[in-house]
């Protein structure tokens, strides 16, 4: 009897849930510490999503293990639309470098939101004034220049690409997330790291050095930062962020989330907030995002192989 009731309840439950979605707060998992760049992008996004979704959106920072702890947590959450997951390109790289078994296929993509260009950043305690100085020095002391990176993630891939293009060798040290990396680089405990234009305040204060931005053209916000390309290193790299839900989330809920996401991403307020983060709004609807992810995953697989980091 009890089993029968339980069965009935289980059958009715999803229907009831869809009808009133969202009838309780939605948790948005950010798999990094508060104050990092992913957090900085999703913090202003959450209230806008909340406005269009018509239910409270609460950010939960679940950092650790190169961002895969939060990913696993999101993957194991019930697929009822009450858990969302803030993702970026690391989901591909951590999969192919063998950091974790979670892949983008474990989730239902909802929409892509933003794209942030990577900037090669050096500690103020280093002697280099340009990328050329760095590469000359790196050739003299292979494997001695330290790079703070979230291992297996985008902040590891970006310097690895430069390493490979320039034919030098760096030494990687685990500093997870942008916030701890900034501390280490301000104190000179690592020489180099990947960051982005959000850190321009620290450059103006002379606490950091931007050696080059990984875009095709210079950024209008910070015209005096040269691109890597014009300094002879042909590397273009950015980090793309989007929203996902656990696999098996009902289509009706995904549809609601997609339309709310679109409305939120189009708000002028979001564009303004992203500008402060040195980030471009790059909205993609669900379908487009899915095919983009597929392409990006192959790209990361090739990249991991090229860089000698492929572990699958």
């Amino acid at each position: 009897m009890k089993k029968l009731i339980a069965g009935l309840v289980a059958a009715v439950l999803p229907l009831a849930a869809t009808a009133a979605y969202p009838d309780r707060p939605v948790k948005l998992i950010v798999p990094w510490a508060a104050g990092g760049d992913t957090d900085n992008i999703f913090r202003p996004f959450a209230p806008l999503l909340q406005k269009h979704l018509g239910g409270t959106v609460v950010i939960a920072n679940i950092g650790g293990a190169s961002g895969t702890k939060g990913a696993k947590e999101a993957k194991d959450s019930p697929a009822d639309g009450y858990t969302l997951y803030a993702v970026h390109d690391y989901i591909h790289s951590t999969y192919w470098t063998g950091v974790a078994d979670v892949n983008y296929t474990d989730f239902e993509p909802i929409c892509m939101l933003s794209s942030t260009a990577s900037v090669l950043t050096a500690s103020p305690k280093t002697p280099w004034h340009s990328l050329k100085d760095l590469i000359a020095d790196a050739k003299k002391r292979p494997g001695q220049i330290t790079v703070g990176a979230t291992l297996g993630s985008t902040s590891h891939f970006f310097p690895a690409l430069i390493e490979k293009t320039a034919g030098v060798k760096f030494k990687y040290v685990s500093y997870e997330g942008l916030a701890p990396r900034m501390n280490a680089i301000l104190g000179g405990h690592v020489d180099l790291t990947d960051s982005n234009l959000t850190q321009k305040g620290k450059v103006e204060a002379g606490q950091l050095k931007f050696l080059g931005i990984a875009t095709e053209k210079r950024n209008p916000e910070m015209k005096d930062v040269p691109t890597l390309k014009e300094q002879g290193i042909n590397v273009v790299y950015d980090v793309n962020r989007g929203l996902m839900a656990p696999k098996g989330t009902p289509a009706a809920i995904l549809g609601k989330l997609e339309s709310s996401c679109q409305a939120a991403a189009k708000e002028p307020e979001f564009a303004k907030a992203m500008k402060l983060q040195g980030t471009d709004v790059r909205y993609m609807e669900r379908k487009q995002y899915v095919s983009w992810l597929k392409k990006n995953d192959r790209l990361n697989q090739d990249l991991a192989k090229d860089l000698g980091l492929l572990k699958r």
Partner: peptide, 12 residues
């Protein structure tokens, strides 16, 4: 306080 408390799997 928008703190969610567990719902019963048997009782909903």
């Amino acid at each position: 306080l928008t703190v969610l408390l567990p719902r019963g799997r048997w009782t909903d």
